[in-house]
Amino acid sequence: MIDVNRQGEVWVFAEQEDGVLHDVSLELCGKARELAGILRVPVAAVLPGANVRNLASRLIQLGADKVYLVDDPRLAHYQTLSYARVLTTLVDKHRPQIALFGATAIGRDLAPRVASTLRAGLTADCTDLQIADVTDPRDKKLHEKLLLQIRPAFGGNIIATIVNYDQWPQMATVREGVMSMLDPDLARPVQIVEEKIEIDQAELAIQLIQQHVEPRKVNLKGARVIVAGGGGVGSKADFRLIHELAGVIGGAVGASRAAVDSGFIGKEHQVGQTGTTVRPALYIAAGISGAVQHRAGMEESAKIIAINRDPQAPIFSVAHYGIVGDLKKVIPMMIKSLKERHGAC
């Protein structure tokens, strides 16, 4: 943990895999720029990797003032302990006031490890970040220009604002796609600060043996009709019903975070604040309870049909048509009815 350091920079962990920067890191450079503007401090991106020097300019174009480059062949693949060593060493050295990470598989693995070593606070999956003066209700002490870490909690039923008064840096992971990327400014001067970090052999203990990356290839944004399934679909096998209905209608397949988290379907199908925001002519939500993050990503659809067993499900609050019932019965009926129509034409 570091003490409150009002001159401290705003940091972004620049996540890259095989030399490609993750979009969320670039989005965060823009958000960091905004926060740092209020705080009147610089933005820095921390870029560990092997042969990644060429990525620095993009981080700068999209909002960073400088890049701490840790170029080391041992950092070629992400490993929790070696990357955590890089971050904790640099935080101790430069004492940033804010450190932001993407809420990706890597960011959610790395940030808690770093926060724990530093004994600093960490808020997961933020959907908004702001700067504001906060009075501690306990001792009425005023803390100026704190980072408000805003996130949904309790299954998306509440929005919590978290602060970290004095065990800095103020750390947060931020959902992908929530912050918008700045337009690149090619005129910004590139400032690279090279850092060498001691890495112990024991910190390379977990080794990558084999890797498989599934490409993103779903076009939700362009779809006229989206059939989306949620956790209520129940299983990967039953999710075939969603594909089938989408096939019959000629629409795309969408999903709620619950369905993605349960492994029914890939993340590239996720609709919502944290996935893709869509506005199709027709959105069919099957077995989706309708957490606020999901509704935020689809409520602008021209027509919404909600199918859910629970008549109290919040999805019905944005629906134009509601079917209270078992999707495993209702969807086959829809498929049958649609096929009959096709047959008739």
Partner: peptide
């Protein structure tokens, strides 16, 4: 021992607007 403090909690208001209820039948 907890550096993070909950500063504010807001509930998501569940608005109940009208929708046409379709019976779950053929």
């Amino acid at each position: 021992g907890s550096p993070t403090k909950v500063y504010r909690v807001q509930s998501i208001v569940l608005t109940k607007e009208g929708y046409s209820e379709i019976p779950a039948s053929e």
